[in-house]
Design a protein around this nucleic acid. Structure first.
Length: 734
DNA sequence: AGCACGCCGACT
DNA sequence: GTCGGCGTGCTC
């Protein structure tokens, strides 16, 4: 007779694409989905998470079956919905299930420490039945519980009732008078008492429209396309109100840490009595765990966080908001390469709750979804108050002599702006002093030993730094190749601009904001403070400056080195440049003063650029979409990028050659293979990088192929020391 | 990913 | 004769 025990399907922190089966003793009770287990794996004790169960083992050889060691916590750590989402994500991104589940957990929960959530007792009936009259002890405990307001912690019960309390509680539980629970949800506070901004008719109409859209039976994601300064945050805040009033949770995803405190401030002001948490990379492990638990226990209803916050357990989730949905930081670029926005959309769909994507510059994919009617679309095209959109002009620098990257027209406009006692911002997406140091005599240049790239000259530190692998070395005093003393720099960086401007405008404060000048904790806040203290000033910065910050006295923005992005062969480059340009331009003239934007370029006739300036972002984006349609690029086709790297180029190529051959043997089913080729940055940190692009009009065909690959890859023999990865929906093809 | 097992070079 | 190199293969 077959007496095989029931099993749970367990995700473990190992590179396995499937769960492992472990048996358990059903007489000890069932094991809920999402529970954390202690298990033995290959002779070692480790942590697993229950992803499913079945009455009999599903593994081929039942002799291998082991029993779980124990349940680690008194509560499952993930609810059924998150288990389903993570399961889906593992399949969609072709990532080992354990990798997915464990990146979704706070790091303290990946370890073998039990969580031991406090148990609370909840009164479930308020009328004490007469039968309790006879059971004095039960009655006393029951009345005491009632006096405490209906929720009491296990510890409090033990302290009050003394020995034997557990038996008494079990009696009360059996009579249906109490139930054990985790922490009670935070009480409903009173909502939105802060003084409200007056809304524009357009904002009001948008809020009303969104509120109507998100209460429809058939929910679609909503794109809120609002130009910079149009008050998207205010719309989020108002749309949230009815959701919060129902006691539901709102999950807000934001691009990166630098903007989180700012947004949190707005939320605090608007909802001063609502408890909220922030989940970002700046938290300690303990803080992160606490925030995670508070969301899980419904102690907070507003959860603001970066990419990984999409996995925060919210048992009563009512709305998801993705701010700056186009932002690249939502896509994880290593390991489990998920897209926070796309997973949020999936999560909202699974829960049948509304989701709002906000951006001044929606991603092409998102815009296409709105154009095709798959998403609702709302447009906030005006800035409230007197703020007007800035005037943007292209400045042809072809054949002009530049002074440290600045044309004479630019310089005179800077002078004029400063004379009006206003601020100027110079935007250049390159930190350091100069991107290249070379010998004027023999042509030697400072190459990184580990990467196929130049090292950037950082004057202040007196170093050459590789921006790809962070290797540093002291600037040589003379040419390492010919001994010549005349080493010259080429090109512009933020540091050099800062220096040149301080020489040209010795009385004007120059405030540089880039990764180097803001590395120290609190340095960014200091710099921003300086900007607000000096109404006449020059700001020099990288894309850090492009997002979110409000500089009311800033009226001139100069964009330098625009051409690299325009000429790039990477088809995402122009989309990103357009987004960046619109975001940068949005910094100019945010109050009542008119803003101007100058773009220095050698290619003022560039069609994408011309469309962007003459007809705006939406038409620019639609034009790029048409191009993508012609090439069957996303969103008109589906892509996955296989990457490999190795200390030897041939080994890295060999990996992808073997994969390509393997896939061809299986049958491509209409999927096109492009490559293998070397990556644009051929060598990085001592490893050669190669890639193979898979493209198909049919998502299913692509996924079938990837699924075959991951499940048969062990048959392939790769050279030693090679690594490979799969990137589904890649956003970075370099 | 770990880790054990296993088959070839320089050492007590 | 052994210690240890990292190639190969397995983990419910």
């Amino acid at each position: 007779m077959n007496t095989l025990p029931p099993v749970v399907h367990v995700a473990v922190q190992r590179p396995f694409y499937s769960t492992l089966d472990y048996s358990y003793d059903p007489t000890q009770g069932s094991i809920p989905l999402g529970s954390r287990l202690e298990i033995k794996l290959a002779g070692r004790t480790t942590v697993g998470v229950v992803m499913g169960s079945s009455p009999t083992p599903t593994l081929a050889d039942p002799k291998k079956l082991k029993a779980i060691t124990r349940l680690m916590d008194n509560e499952p750590i993930l609810d059924a919905h998150l288990v389903e989402l993570l399961d889906w994500a593992a399949k969609y991104y072709h990532e080992p299930i354990g990798e997915v589940v464990f990146t979704a957990l706070p790091s303290l929960l990946r370890q073998q420490r039990p969580l031991n959530l406090p148990i609370w007792w909840q009164l479930t009936a308020t009328e004490s039945p007469t039968e309790l009259q006879r059971a004095k002890r039960q009655l006393a405990l029951y009345e005491w519980l009632k006096a405490q307001g209906g929720y009491v912690s296990e510890d409090a019960v033990a302290a009050w009732a003394g020995n034997g309390w557990r038996v008494t509680m079990r009696h009360l539980e059996a009579k249906g008078l109490v139930a054990s629970t985790t922490l009670p949800p935070a009480p409903l506070e009173h909502i939105a008492t802060a003084p409200h901004l007056t809304l524009t008719p357009q904002q009001l109409a948008t809020i009303e429209g969104i509120q109507h859209a998100i209460t429809q039976a058939e929910l679609k994601p909503t794109l809120l396309h609002g130009i910079t300064g149009s008050g998207k945050t205010e719309v989020y805040l108002r749309v949230m109100a009815p959701i919060l009033a129902q006691g539901k949770q709102v999950l807000v995803l934001v691009p990166e840490i630098s903007l989180t405190p700012q947004l949190l401030g707005r939320f605090r002001t608007h909802y001063p009595h609502e408890r909220m948490v922030c989940l970002h990379s700046g938290l300690t492990d303990q803080e992160r765990l606490q925030a995670w638990l508070q969301a899980q226990q419904q102690q907070v209803r507003i959860i603001i966080g970066t990419r990984s916050a999409v996995f925060t357990p919210c048992p009563n989730l009512g709305l998801i908001i993705i701010d700056e949905e186009h932002d690249l930081s939502f896509k994880q670029q290593e390991g489990f390469r998920y897209h926070g926005r796309d997973l949020a959309i999936k999560r909202a769909h699974m829960l049948n709750i509304p989701i709002i994507l906000g951006s001044a510059t929606p991603a092409l994919e998102t815009l296409h979804n709105a154009d095709s009617g798959r998403f609702h679309y709302f447009h906030l095209a005006q800035r409230p108050g007197t703020a007007k959109p800035p005037s943007v002009q292209l400045q042809n620098i072809r054949g002009q002599t530049l002074r440290s990257g600045l044309s004479s027209t630019t310089l005179s406009m800077i002078k004029d702006t400063l004379a009006r006692q206003e601020q100027v911002m110079l935007f250049i997406n390159r930190r350091g002093f100069a991107p290249l140091l070379m010998c004027s005599s023999c042509g030697w240049s400072g190459q990184c030993e580990h990467c196929s790239a130049n090292m950037t000259y950082h004057a202040r530190q007196g170093k050459l730094i590789c921006h790809h692998c962070s290797v540093e070395k002291l600037v040589p005093e003379h040419c390492p190749q010919c001994g010549h003393h005349h080493l010259v720099t080429q090109g512009q960086g933020t540091e050099r601009l800062e220096l040149v401007l301080s020489q040209t405008f010795p009385t004007i404060p120059i405030i540089r904001i880039d990764r180097d000048s803001t590395a120290r904790k609190g340095a960014l806040a200091e710099r921003l403070q300086q900007v607000h203290e000096h109404p006449t000033a020059i700001l020099v910065g990288t894309q850090m400056l492009a997002k979110g910050h409000d500089f009311p006295n800033l009226t001139l923005v100069v964009v330098l080195e625009a051409d690299a992005a325009l000429l790039s062969s990477e088809y995402h480059a122009r989309e990103r440049f357009g987004q960046l340009l619109v975001q940068v331009a949005g910094r100019a003239g945010r109050s009542d003063k008119a803003g101007q934007v100058i773009i220095q370029t050698n290619h003022p006739e560039n069609p994408a650029l011309v469309t962007l300036l003459a007809q705006g972002y939406t038409l620019f984006a639609r034009q790029l979409l048409e191009e993508r349609r012609r090439w069957h690029y996303p969103p008109f086709g589906y892509q996955a990028l296989l990457r490999a790297n190795a200390p030897e180029l041939n080994d890295a190529l060999d990996v992808l050659d073997k994969m390509a051959e393997h896939l061809q043997l299986f049958g491509l089913g209409g999927v096109i293979l492009l490559g293998p080729t070397t990556a644009m940055l051929e060598k990085r940190a001592g490893r050669y990088r190669t890639q193979l692009l898979l493209q198909s009009a049919n998502r299913k065909a692509l996924h079938t192929l990837l699924n075959y690959l991951t499940h048969t890859i062990k048959q392939l023999k790769f050279p030693a020391n090679t690594r490979w990865s799969i990137d589904v929906d890649p956003l970075d093809l370099t």
